[in-house]
Design a protein around this nucleic acid. Structure first.
Length: 371
DNA sequence: GCCACCGGTGGC
DNA sequence: GCCACCGGTGGC
């Protein structure tokens, strides 16, 4: 589970080759096991050597990053919630204030003066989604001096916890068809421009709350990001009788690339199907323990009080009769299963099973005894 | 003093 | 063995 891995980058080079630059100093955890998904999932060949990176500004010139800052993982677009401008402009928007990285400059220079003509249609629109379901980068359908341009989006990597239904079934099987993701505290704060606000004592540590909700399509098994916890809970509560499919998302079909892949770039937790929707006025909160051993479920009352068990809920309702309409049965403290194979290698699980990667990538040191 | 977090356990 | 539940406590 990663909170932020702000310095990891992916750069699309001259030949459309993906260059990974894993951070040395990234915050906890997945760094060496993170498997980045390529931002160009199917169109890389068709983009071929005309693919060039450009660094672009957002509309307000607020956030600017060089091409080297481009990386995936799902936070907010440098263009704000609606992504970069597309198709409307004949040339990239304002030049970047930050100097382009040397490598990119060289690429741009190389292209200049080369006359390239090609009648072929522009490649299909490329994008991947952040955990809000918004595009993380865009392929601009702009040809400039023979180049097609990719608008890069710098994002940080919030912790993403996914939840799916159908307990006990494995990814890729017919019935294992649903997982979910939500924006985490950190992201919400940044979106609201309050990142500098110190976290209130009561707040759960960012990065250990559910960040992204996703559901797996019953037909094609691709994972679809679900935009809100409420929507997720709605799907989850009915998934047994009404399986989730891609077409339940607006303007999405099984033909579209998956929003998310099940891999260790995020910590996944698997929810049980059929858990009732959270009663109105309450919020259901899942918190991952630091050692990744399990999650804890809380219901948060409208006044912000945390309820830790059904008994606490019962006594709360008893002393607050205005909530007597909330059925006790709709409070479920069932916790999702933490998928160990998606936990960071250094997570202190009760019985860690080192993977081959772990062994090959770092030497094994004897564990110091505690206390 | 409060509360986020964790550990332990009883019941299934 | 799992998990719902809750007591304890360390840090703020």
């Amino acid at each position: 589970m990663v909170i932020t891995a702000s310095s990891s980058t992916i750069l699309i080079g001259e030949e459309g080759v993906e260059i990974h630059r894993p951070s040395e100093e990234s915050t906890p955890t997945h760094s060496h096991r993170r498997r980045w998904s390529t931002p160009i999932e199917s169109g890389v060949e068709s983009l071929d050597e005309r693919l060039t990176f450009r660094s672009l500004t957002d509309h307000d010139g607020v956030e600017q990053r060089g091409a080297d800052d481009f990386y995936l993982g799902g936070e907010i677009s440098a263009w704000g919630p609606f992504g970069p401008p597309l198709l409307k402009e004949s040339r990239p928007v304002a030049p970047p204030q930050m100097p382009l990285p040397k490598r990119t400059e060289a690429v741009v220079e190389l292209r200049r003066g080369r006359s390239v003509t090609r009648k072929r249609d522009l490649p299909p629109y490329l994008t991947t989604l952040d955990c809000n379901g918004r595009p993380r980068f865009h392929h601009r359908r702009v040809r400039s001096e023979g180049r097609l341009e990719i608008a890069s989006v710098a994002v940080s990597i919030p912790e993403i916890v996914s939840v799916r239904g159908r307990e006990g079934l494995r990814i890729g099987t017919e019935a294992e068809n649903f997982s979910l993701v939500l924006p985490n505290k950190l992201m919400e704060e940044e979106e609201l421009g309050k990142a500098a606000t110190p976290r209130a004592k009561k707040d759960v540590a960012p990065g250990r709350v559910v960040d992204t909700y996703a559901a797996q399509c019953d037909a094609c098994h691709k994972w679809r990001v679900i935009g809100s916890q409420e929507e997720y809970e709605d799907i989850r509560s009915r998934v047994l009788e009404d399986p989730f499919t891609c077409d339940k998302k607006k303007q999405v079909s099984c033909e579209d690339p998956a929003d998310l892949d099940y891999d260790s770039s995020r910590t996944w937790v698997i929810d049980k199907p059929g858990i009732p929707k959270t009663p109105k006025g309450f919020k259901r909160s899942l918190v991952l323990r630091k050692d990744y051993s399990k999650m804890d479920t809380y219901y948060i009352t409208p006044a912000g009080k945390k309820l830790r068990s059904r008994n606490e809920v019962a006594s709360f309702i008893e002393t607050n009769p205005e909530f007597k309409d909330a059925p006790l049965g709709d409070f479920a403290f069932t916790v999702p299963k933490v998928m160990e194979d998606t936990c960071p290698p250094d997570a202190k699980l009760a019985s860690p099973i080192p993977t081959t990667d772990d062994v090959s990538e770092k030497s094994i040191k004897p564990k110091p005894f505690k206390g």
